[in-house]
């Protein structure tokens, strides 16, 4: 294990042409996770991954401690106080999933001034002294259209299922989808509904719009959590089921598996793995290690394709979402990719 780690580190350094060698010892360093909310399956999986990966890291002596703290009320001032408490508890780095991109900046600044490394992910903070591991939602939307463009070379009509209106994630993914449609130039979005990232809402919304749509819909672009509901709506309407892009939820993946076995149905699935918390952990470890890490990093998507569907489905809990835990090498790849 140790040799692999070292090897990975050397490759990463060589690849990126970094000048600073990062072999400082982090075995006496303590890292804390400041999390604002734990009330859904994604966040539970996120905390589970953190516990698993950092538990091993502590056991192997990579770091001295990696404790997770969650605020009880998901409130900005509460998390600000929590971060200030973590500074006082003497942590060397704080990994943050923030309740607000701006509201914690004062506390984050205090941490930086006290020499604490702050790495934010998922819910990022804008304070310049912190590191950010952000999700490129726009690219995610665009990737869906690019996949469809490869698969359906003649193009055609698309149905778009959007998320929760007014949330920036919804705007970003949708903007990416529309950009992809404009670039590839062979698709037309004939209908758009809001599915609120939930199967039941999506099913109702799609069932409602289907009668007004042309018969030849070739693809459905989605945002995750809505693919299964869309499939059920198409089935209930007695229509041919188009290529529905999935969002890594268990019900979506198991439906896809059924269709694949029955009729060779093909699609892809993409979302963000809750294990991104472990990526943030390794990035923090690398910064403590003295590595030269750019302030803005991008989370890789967890994409499931036809050939790795079974593996991912087997690893996904019922009612949960496909997950992946990141390793030190993954973090180094992300870092070298950004620099």
């Amino acid at each position: 294990m140790k040799t692999i780690t070292t090897l990975g580190m050397v490759t990463a350094v060589a690849l990126s042409g970094m000048t600073v060698s990062a072999i400082a010892d982090t075995s006496d360093k303590r890292i804390a996770l400041s999390n604002n909310y734990a009330g859904n399956s994604w966040r539970q999986a996120m905390l589970g991954s953190w516990e698993k990966v950092t538990g091993e890291a502590v056991e192997n002596g990579t770091v001295a401690a990696a404790d997770a703290f969650t605020t009880a009320e998901n409130q900005v001032t509460e998390q600000a106080a929590q971060i200030q408490n973590l500074i006082l508890q003497g942590y060397d780095a704080i990994v943050v999933n923030a309740a607000s991109p701006e509201g914690l900046n004062g506390a984050v600044k205090e941490a930086c001034d006290a020499g604490v490394v702050v790495v934010s992910f998922d819910g990022i903070v804008t304070e310049p002294c912190a590191w950010r591991i952000a999700v490129d939602f726009k690219q995610m939307g665009k990737d869906e259209v690019l996949y469809l463009s490869d698969k359906l070379s003649e193009g055609g009509n698309l149905l778009e299922i959007r998320g929760l209106a007014g949330v920036f994630v919804d705007d970003e993914i949708s903007a990416g989808i529309h950009e992809g449609v404009a670039e590839t130039g062979k698709f037309e979005i004939v209908g758009s509904v809001h599915g609120n990232w939930a199967q039941d809402v999506s099913q109702k919304a799609v069932a409602g719009i289907l009668p007004s749509l042309p018969d030849d819909i070739v693809g459905v672009v989605t945002q995750g959590g809505d693919g299964y509901g869309a499939a059920q709506a198409f089935k209930a309407a007695g229509r041919d089921i188009p290529v529905i892009v999935m969002g890594n939820r268990h019900d979506e993946l198991s439906w896809w598996k059924e269709q694949k076995d029955a009729s060779g149905y093909e699609t892809m699935s993409v979302s963000i793995a809750p294990g991104v918390s472990t990526l943030a952990f390794w990035v923090a470890q690398q910064i403590l290690d003295g590595a030269d890490v750019p302030k803005d990093l991008t989370v890789p998507f967890l994409r499931i394709d036809q050939d790795n569907l079974e593996d991912n489905l087997a690893n996904t809990e019922e009612g949960g979402v496909a997950n992946v835990e990141y390793t030190l090498e993954d973090a180094q790849a992300v870092i070298s990719g950004a620099s």
Binding site: E73, Q75, V76, T77, E78, A80, S100, E102, G103, L104, N105, G106, A107, K109, T126, E127
Partner: peptide
Amino acid sequence: ALVGLTTSADANIALRY
């Protein structure tokens, strides 16, 4: 005072007050 500490604001920032 709160904004002086946090440096920026959020519409939900002080609900627990």
